[in-house]
């Protein structure tokens, strides 16, 4: 079942002359882990803003085409109603925390919705638990590392229990270890809590192995859309400079010189190790 469906989606910012998103038609299935990638400035953030209604309600501008998210027509639905269905985590962890303590911040969305206190407390506990930051609940945002701040932002979304979580380069300000922790939380949400995840990511080394679906954009258009193995091993992806995982590149080179003869495209070091072991044992 499709949870997000766009058809010929085209959007132009108020002062811009050409569209930032240009004729995008994609479908995201319920429960999927989708990775959205592409060179800088290709319109990934703009597309994320469309998913939760910031475009067109906050940014105005000119939105054309069809855009349905969890069965709702985004153009007709106010942002605060879409917020119940789609959570958006931003790139800069610092600028999405408002309160002076972690738990208060996590509760922010629920407070806005007018949830009764005892219920809210339960939801906050659940969100803190799921993102592994229960021990930080009384800390102030500036006492936290970037990775911890980003997990607070994620917890703030979890607390609202949307069906879809969209994360816009959540790890670009973080060190690899912090990034790894974020991916683990997101992965658990997808696997154990059946949340649909859309992750925007430049560096696919860590993210690709979790994906069910990879979408590559370039200059506002979707140029590749499909299974991770197909997309990442395609020539087109390499040409526009997508951050293809190193193991996949290694596999391609080995395949070119004829050392590997399989159709199994590896996306993680574990997978390529298994492949190589198979070859060496022959």
């Amino acid at each position: 079942m499709a949870i997000i469906r766009t058809k010929g989606l085209t959007y132009t910012y108020p002062v811009a002359t050409k569209p930032a998103v240009d004729g995008v038609s994609i479908t995201i299935e319920k429960g999927e882990f989708a990775v959205l990638t592409g060179p800088s400035g290709c319109g990934k953030t703009t597309l994320c803003r469309c998913f939760n209604g910031l475009i067109p309600h906050f940014y105005r501008g000119d939105l054309r085409g069809q855009l349905q998210v969890t069965g709702l027509d985004v153009k007709e639905t106010p942002i605060h109603e879409l917020a119940l269905h789609v959570g958006l985590v931003f790139q800069n962890p610092e600028n999405q925390l408002f309160a002076l303590s972690v738990e208060k911040d996590v509760a922010f969305g629920l407070e806005n919705l007018g949830m009764p206190r005892n219920e809210m407390q339960k939801q906050v506990d659940y969100a803190l638990e799921t993102s592994g930051i229960s021990h930080l609940r009384l800390k102030a945002p500036h006492e936290l590392s970037g990775g911890q701040q980003q997990r607070v932002a994620i917890a703030g979304i979890i607390a609202m229990q949307p069906e879809v979580m969209v994360l816009d380069e959540p790890t670009s300000f973080l060190d690899p270890l912090g990034a790894e922790k974020i991916f683990k939380v997101v992965r658990a949400l997808n696997q154990e809590h059946h949340m649909t995840v859309i992750l925007v990511e430049h560096r696919l080394d860590l993210a690709a192995r979790y994906a069910d679906h990879v979408i590559v954009m370039d200059r506002g258009k979707v140029i590749l859309d499909g299974e991770p193995k197909d997309v990442l091993s395609s020539e087109k992806a390499r040409l526009i400079g997508v951050g293809i995982p190193k193991v996949t590149l290694l596999y391609q080179q080995l395949a070119e010189v004829g050392l590997l003869k399989t159709n199994e495209v590896p996306l993680s070091s574990e997978e390529i190790t298994a492949l190589l072991r198979g070859v060496l044992n022959d």
């Binding site: 910031l54 605060h80 959570g87 931003f90 600028n95 408002f98 407070e111 007018g114 906050v124 703030g156």
Partner: peptide, 20 residues
């Protein structure tokens, strides 16, 4: 960016908001 994040978390959804 803050305004964007606030909107995304249902700011102004109802008149009488509650408090943790």
């Amino acid at each position: 960016e803050l305004a964007e994040a606030m909107e995304s978390r249902a700011w102004g959804a109802i008149q009488k908001r509650t408090n943790l």
